[in-house]
């Protein structure tokens, strides 16, 4: 059975308040048997250095990605992973991670591809939990396996492919990478390894809103009003817009996807996970360099 959602003033302002929990709420609910806490980090060893008591680890690369094709695991693979982590179809899953929940949001987005209903983020993530001096342990739980059903992925509502993006021109796109990547000065994040894109720049007409702008200093999400100012007043999104967000491999844009979908309530938001490592290498797709969005080409269908 799902665990009752947290209610507080900050969350109540968001479109889907039940998608977030605070560190206080989590600390008070750790013993609830319907709750499974999942840590998902960029650094593959961080969980082992200490994690929230009872939390299991899910690694974006070795657990959620298909080992051969550039794709996510399939229904059977996901069911096996869930079962091994002690997660049932009706479990309440709270995900948290490093870097303002960047990888946690990515994991949440993948859970959503499989329609796992009750999946939430810990507002502020790993850093806030630690900053508050809350309990950590290196003890790795050994959950009993569950019989998680095999559910086929439903990509269409929240995942965009390259062909979808070409057909999307004329509707809003959000580029969540750094300004240097957007302008085409560089093809990777500052201080990050080269991931091999042959061309630099951005998808024509995409507005630049670096993902971390949605996070406050302490890693928590900014308030509804602050987010409205960034994505609506500044980036020009309007109520009812059909939006595609992208970054480099689809991780940072999962964070923005969460903000647009669950905090601001845009019904139609898709994450283009092929992102720049696909677009910047694809043959004959349009690219704009520099800091201006540029005009949208005619949609290609």
């Amino acid at each position: 059975m799902p665990v009752a959602a947290e209610s507080n003033e900050k969350f109540a302002a968001y479109a889907d308040p039940e998608r977030l929990v605070s560190t206080e709420w989590l600390a008070a609910n750790l013993d609830n048997e319907s709750l499974v806490v999942v840590e998902s980090d960029e650094d593959i060893l961080l969980y082992e250095t200490g994690h929230i008591p009872g939390a299991v680890k899910i690694d974006w690369h070795t657990d959620l990605n298909d080992p051969v094709a550039r794709d996510y695991v399939d229904g059977a693979g996901f069911a096996k992973l869930m079962s091994s982590k002690g997660i049932s179809r009706d479990s309440t899953v709270v995900i948290y991670g490093d870097k303002s929940n960047w990888w946690a949001a990515y994991a949440l987005w993948v859970f959503t591809l499989f329609g796992h209903e009750d999946v939430r983020l810990l507002d502020g993530g790993r850093d806030k939990w630690i900053a508050e001096g809350r309990d950590l342990t290196t003890e790795v739980p050994q959950p009993g396996s569950t019989d998680y059903p095999v559910i086929e992925r439903n990509d269409e509502p929240i995942r965009a492919y390259l062909s979808d993006v070409l057909a999307h021109f004329g509707k809003p796109l959000i580029d969540v990478r750094s300004p240097e990547e957007y302008s085409g000065q560089r093809t990777t994040m500052p201080a990050y390894p080269e991931e091999g894109a042959l061309r630099g720049g951005h998808i024509p007409s995409a507005a630049s809103v670096p993902w971390a702008r949605a996070a406050a200093e302490d890693g928590t999400f900014r308030s509804r009003d602050e987010l409205e100012a960034i994505y609506k007043a500044e980036a020009g999104l309007k109520e009812g817009d059909d939006v595609v967000a992208y970054c480099r491999i689809g991780e940072r844009s999962s964070h923005t996807w969460f903000v647009l979908k669950h905090l601001l309530g845009f019904e139609n938001v898709r994450n283009y996970d092929g992102s720049w490592t696909e677009w910047g290498n694809a043959v004959r797709v349009p690219i704009v360099k520099g800091s201006e969005p540029g005009d949208a080409p005619a949609p290609r269908r």
Binding site: D43, I44, L45, L46, E48, T49, D98
Partner: peptide, 9 residues
């Protein structure tokens, strides 16, 4: 930094 165990490793 300690929060980068892989890099430290």
């Amino acid at each position: 930094p300690p929060e980068a165990p892989t890099t430290r490793g």
